[in-house]
Amino acid sequence: MRVLAAAWEQIYGLLVEDGQIAIGTLIAFVATAIYAYVVGDELRNSAGWLLFTLLMALLLVNLFNTGRKAYAERTHH
């Protein structure tokens, strides 16, 4: 049972380490899917680049917040 629990923890940990990144990735994906569905055939091909832009923005924002938090923790101590 303990091995199974550890395996489950590992699988969950594989995908979710930072909640903001995991949830943000899912939201970016769903938003892009809605965009691709709504805009129709002509603009659908731009959805790939939209997904790319959203994810890279998410990564930068997340790292910016993490960096600031780390700096604040360090200087606080």
């Binding site: 594989l14 995908l15 979710v16 380490e17 930072d18 990144i21 995991a22 990735t25 899912l26 994906f29 994810l55 998410l58 990564l59 997340n62 790292l63 993490t66």
Partner: peptide
């Protein structure tokens, strides 16, 4: 795609 993104973004970060 979703699984690779969740996994890849985690490693990248």
């Amino acid at each position: 795609g979703v699984l690779l993104l969740l996994f890849g973004m985690r490693w990248l970060r």
